[in-house]
Design a binder for these strands. Structure first.
Lengths: 231, 231
DNA sequence: CAATTGTGGAATGTCGACAATTCATAGGTG
DNA sequence: CACCTATGAATTGTCGACATTCCACAATTG
């Protein structure tokens, strides 16, 4: 049973990946999502099926289904027979998004403390953040920060939590894109994370929870007017 | 400004409600959802578009969109070019659903303690539960229980939490339908709730959190084989 | 002139037909 | 006999056309 599936006489080289067949609706959804998350498509923008179909050279069916996918992501809303638009972002929604994220991350910390997951990935992302801060590379810092939190949630070993967190994080991407470039000190952001890992390593549950809680709350601190103006 | 919109010469009687225009996809989605949540469509059942279209006398377009809606609800999954089916329910998913629900309800309790929401609705639903237990009416008890928890989440005044909880509760409906009829003592279930309200009224945060936490955990206690067998 | 009623455009909603893909199965080939 | 290859049925993916609905604004009516 060393070869569960009998190999071909002349196996394909590994680096020739199979051509993945991506349905049009997914391609369309990806492009639209990326446009929304990057802020190019701002909240309130109307999404007209016929216009998008013509622009992207596909029929309306995949456009409709793509928009429905984005609706599931919570990025688009539909008003029957009237139109679809990028969901407006109110200050309240932004606050709710961050507060729910806080609850998710606290839950992850609790579970990590219970199941004793290895923390290697967290240390690694901390290093990446430090390097980015040193290089004054804002984009790299943001990426490493997301990787850190993503890893934290993954370590909780809870698929439903992970899916919910990912969905929530879509909106956070959007919010960050619409927000004025953060004035925060890069080194400070990077420095916030190692204590969390340390508390986890120490098995100090309450401290870990307090740190992750404070940290996510700090991320939510911003001027709501920035978002409102984006409508 | 007593009449913001000028009234008609002869205003319509109140009991003539506007005719709601429900798109076919929504009707289809509602019917399928209800079938899934009631357990008539069991996990793993294949959903073939052409068959459903013929059966419901509509074209495939609304069927496809309805299925996508259910996918958003997390009740259906799609495998490209292969088919769609009612999402299988693993014991792990059931456990994750309940544990996430616990986190949501604890979050709600925390927020209620902070914003001092009125607890009238909760008292009322407790009464309903007691009445149902006395009448040995299982369905009424389940309905009142859901109403209690729904009210609890609503009092938290957090739209995103409410939406997430509702979505999660869909799966709980499905699980309860697949589960063997509960052997639990009706009076015991009803009796679990008033202490929670009391702790909220007393402003005793930790006790309220512990009670809601224990309560939702108790609801999750069941024989996983019941679900697995349902696949 | 105010309120109601008609009308046209724009958008979504629905349909039936065709294309593309997958899997299973039967048949070929060394 | 083991492995490849072709065929076909079943299913989803995509398309273009038509139907329905809504909104805004003009036309009408008292």
């Amino acid at each position: 049973m060393t070869t569960p599936k009998p190999a071909l006489a002349h196996p394909m080289p590994d680096d020739i990946a199979p051509i993945e067949n991506v349905p049009l609706r997914v391609q369309v959804a990806d492009r639209l999502r990326s446009a929304i998350l990057s802020g190019r498509l701002r909240p309130g923008t109307g999404l007209v099926e016929t216009a998008l179909a013509e622009q992207m050279n596909v029929s309306r069916a995949p456009i409709r289904e793509a928009i429905q996918i984005l609706e599931n992501d919570g990025l688009v809303e539909t008003i029957a027979y009237k139109g679809k638009r990028v969901k407006p972002l109110t200050a309240r929604e932004v606050a709710e998004t961050y507060s729910l994220r806080e609850v998710f991350e606290v839950m992850a910390v609790r579970r990590i403390m219970e199941n004793g997951a290895p923390l290697d990935a967290l240390y690694q992302h901390c290093d990446e953040m430090n390097a980015a801060a040193k290089a004054d590379d804002f984009a790299a810092l943001v990426a490493a920060d997301e990787a850190f939190h993503h890893a934290l949630i993954r370590l909780a070993d809870h698929d439903l939590l992970l899916a919910s967190w990912k969905n929530l994080y879509l909106r956070i991407h959007q919010i960050m894109a619409l927000r004025n470039r953060d004035e925060r000190n890069l080194a400070e952001v990077a420095g916030n994370h190692p204590p969390i890992v340390q508390a986890l390593a120490d098995g100090d549950r309450d401290r870990a929870i307090k740190l992750i809680s404070d940290h996510t709350r700090a991320l939510a601190a911003f001027d709501p007017a920035t978002i409102v103006q984006a409508l």
